[in-house]
Simulated assay, not measured.
Amino acid sequence: MTQLIGGPVRRHPGTRPGPRCFRLLLIVGLLLTPRAAAAGDWGHKLPGLPTDFVFGYGTLIDADSRDRTAGAQVPAIPVRVSAEFGYLRAWVDRCSCGFTALGLRKPHPGEPAMTINGVLYAVNASNLPAFDRREGDYRRVPLPRRMIEAVSWQELPRDGQIWVYVPIGPGAEPGVDLPQASAQFPMLQTYIDLVLRGSLIYGSDFAKEIIRTTTDWSLFWLNDREQPRRPWVHTADYQAIDTLLRQTAPASKRFGDRLFPEDYAARRLAQPAPDPSPNPAHPSPAR
């Protein structure tokens, strides 16, 4: 005698199960099969996950800037690098086209390293060479995972190599003996706009941290915005950016030195101050 749901069913030897038994077995099988499939999917990742990531701390924070380089959308998450990494973000990379960009440098004697906030984004075999070409005067340096933290709800990737681009000094050592801004190689307001516009996506506190943790703000600051005397025409967020620069040290200490092009030519180029860093300019645009 076989005990089934609904009471005992008597079966003589050599007889086949009846229709009722088949129906019960079919129902049990249908109930168990989806659970088994679901249990088998748990913990599996999608194929083709990225294995390389880049930490961007300058104009690479801006999504449009990243996307133009990659030729596709490149999502990013906000992160922070520990001072243990041993660098500072500073105005120390001269482009031969005539401006000074952000880079990372080693601290001077007696100067502490600082934390550096920015973004982390994935790269692949097709777009990593494009970023390497863009950062041609920088060296791609490994960034230890333990020295970077996520600052929002998104988590860091669990696997893969993290990279950061560091300018190369005259001695071919990354972050050493780098030139500061000068009359011929000023900080450009349009470059600063790009960095802070990308940073404001993550909030004003994140943008303020960018300013606070950037060193070597300079007397040589050119307001090169299109129609700079009427910035609202072409720079919709100029007020938010200028307020941050005016109120947040150390940029605030140099904000009054920012000049319109004609004033810059008369006061900085006609009678230039001595070049604070006579190292040669780098050959390609920096970030």
Rank of each mutant, 00 (worst) to 15 (best):
I201H: 08
V164M: 14
S218H: 04
G203C: 03
I192V: 15
A265D: 06
M187F: 06
I210H: 08
A251G: 10
P274F: 07
W232V: 11
Y165K: 03
H234M: 08
A273F: 10
E155Q: 12
L219R: 13
P174N: 12
A172V: 08
T214M: 09
K253C: 05
P250F: 06
Y238K: 09
R267I: 01
S152D: 15
I241H: 09
G175M: 14
I211K: 09
Y238G: 10
A240S: 14
I210M: 15
L188D: 04
D159K: 04
W221G: 01
L200K: 09
Q247T: 15
G256A: 10
P231S: 09
V233W: 07
T213V: 04
R268C: 02
W153H: 10
T248W: 03
I168M: 12
T215C: 10
Q227P: 06
S218P: 05
T248G: 07
E173K: 15
T214G: 11
V164Y: 06
Y264N: 03
A265E: 07
V166Y: 05
G169D: 14
H234R: 13
G198E: 10
A236H: 14
S252N: 13
D237V: 11
Y165S: 05
F260R: 14
A183Y: 00
T243C: 09
E155K: 11
P157D: 02
R225K: 02
A183I: 00
R158Q: 11
D159E: 11
A251R: 10
P231H: 08
E226Y: 07
S152F: 06
R268T: 00
Q247Y: 02
L156H: 03
W217F: 15
Y264D: 01
L219N: 12
A181T: 00
M187P: 01
L259M: 15
N223G: 00
M187Q: 07
L196Q: 15
P167A: 09
V164R: 02
I241V: 15
R267V: 00
A273Q: 14
A183R: 00
A240W: 10
L222M: 03
I201M: 05
M187E: 01
G160W: 04
D257W: 05
R212L: 05
L245A: 07
L188N: 12
S218F: 04
R254T: 14
E209V: 04
P274S: 10
F185G: 01
V166G: 12
Q180Y: 01
G203L: 03
V176N: 08
G160P: 02
D205P: 05
P228L: 07
I192F: 04
L259W: 01
A249E: 09
P276Y: 11
Q239K: 14
P170D: 12
P186C: 03
W153V: 05
T190C: 05
A236Q: 13
P250K: 06
A181Q: 00
G160Q: 02
S199E: 07
W221R: 04
V233E: 12
R225F: 02
P170W: 05
G256F: 04
G203E: 03
A181Y: 00
A249G: 13
I162W: 03
P250L: 07
R268Y: 00
